[in-house]
C-alpha cells in the first residue's frame, strides 16, 4: 500500500528532506568546466573561414582516398556528404561536353542528361536497396555511389588526353582498357561498402543495379568523341 502511494506521488518523499543546520553543506557547485571546453573545441563560430573550408575539403579528400583503397572501413558511411558526388558529377558532365553533341542532334549525352542519369540512377539504386531491406541510410548510399564515380571521372580525364593524340584504333584500345579498369574499380569499391548492409541471400540483387549504373556511365565515357 505504501509503495503504491509513493508511486502515485513520486516526489512526495523529497519534501520531508530537511538539512539540519549543524551539518555543513559541502560540495563543488561550479559548472563542470571540462565539458564546456570540449564544446569550444568543436565550436566553429570563431575560426577562420580558411580552416572551415580546409576541414571540409580534407573530409572530402579523405573519402576519395577511401574509394581508391576500398578497404572495409565505415568512414565513408559514417559521416556522409554530397560535396564529393556533386563535384565528380559536374566534372564528368563538363568533360563529356564539347563532343559530338554540339554538332549533331543525335549526339552524345547532354549536360543535363549526365546529371539526371547520375543522380536519378543513384537514387533509384538506393531505393532499390532500401526496398530489399538494406540497413544503410538513404544519404549514406547516395554518398557511396557518388564517391565511387571517381575512377570513372579519372578515366574520362585520361580519355580526353588520349583523344588529343588522335582517335584511331590504338586510341580506342587504350580508352577501352582504361574505362574497363575504372568500371571494375567503381563497382568493386561501391560493392565493398554497400553489400555489407544486405542479407547474404540478396547481395546479388543489390550489386546488379550498381553494375548496370556504372556500366552505363562507362559506356558514355567510352563513346565520347570530340567534334572535329
Amino acid at each position: 500500500m505504501a509503495a503504491a502511494e509513493e508511486a502515485s506521488k513520486p516526489f512526495a518523499g523529497l519534501s520531508d528532506v530537511s538539512i539540519s543546520e549543524d551539518i555543513p553543506v559541502e560540495g563543488d557547485i561550479s559548472v563542470p568546466v571540462g565539458s564546456s571546453r570540449r564544446d569550444d573545441e568543436f565550436s566553429t563560430l570563431d575560426e577562420p573561414v580558411k580552416e572551415t573550408i580546409l576541414r571540409d575539403l580534407r573530409a572530402v579528400g579523405n573519402k576519395f582516398v577511401h574509394v581508391l583503397y576500398p578497404k572495409r572501413s565505415s568512414a565513408l558511411l559514417r559521416d556522409w556528404d554530397l560535396w564529393g558526388p556533386l563535384l565528380l558529377c559536374v566534372t564528368l558532365a563538363l568533360l563529356l561536353q564539347g563532343g559530338a553533341a554540339d554538332s549533331d542532334d543525335q549526339g552524345g549525352p547532354q549536360f543535363a542528361e549526365v546529371f539526371v542519369i547520375v543522380w536519378f540512377g543513384s537514387i533509384i539504386i538506393t531505393l532499390n536497396s532500401k526496398l530489399l531491406g538494406g540497413t544503410i541510410s538513404f544519404f549514406q548510399s547516395l554518398c557511396v555511389l557518388g564517391y565511387c564515380i571517381m575512377p570513372l571521372t579519372v578515366a574520362m580525364v585520361v580519355c580526353r588526353i588520349v583523344l588529343m593524340g588522335g582517335s584511331g584504333a590504338v586510341s580506342f584500345a587504350v580508352r577501352l582498357a582504361v574505362v574497363t579498369v575504372s568500371f571494375g574499380w567503381s563497382t568493386f569499391a561501391s560493392t565493398a561498402f554497400l553489400a555489407d548492409s544486405q542479407p547474404p541471400n540478396r547481395k546479388a540483387l543489390v550489386v546488379y543495379p550498381v553494375f548496370l549504373f556504372y556500366f552505363v556511365i562507362g559506356w558514355m565515357i567510352l563513346t565520347f568523341s570530340p567534334s572535329q
Partner: peptide, 30 residues
C-alpha cells in the same frame, strides 16, 4: 532499355565501319 540502345549503336557502327563519310555518334537520345 540500355541493351537495345547500346547494341543498336554498336551495330550501326559496325555496318558503317570503314565508310569515308561516316562519323560515329553515341546516339544517346535512343
Amino acid at each position: 532499355v540500355f541493351a537495345i540502345a547500346i547494341s543498336g549503336n554498336i551495330s550501326n557502327f559496325l555496318v558503317h565501319l570503314g565508310k569515308p563519310h561516316y562519323k560515329y555518334t553515341p546516339e544517346f537520345g535512343k
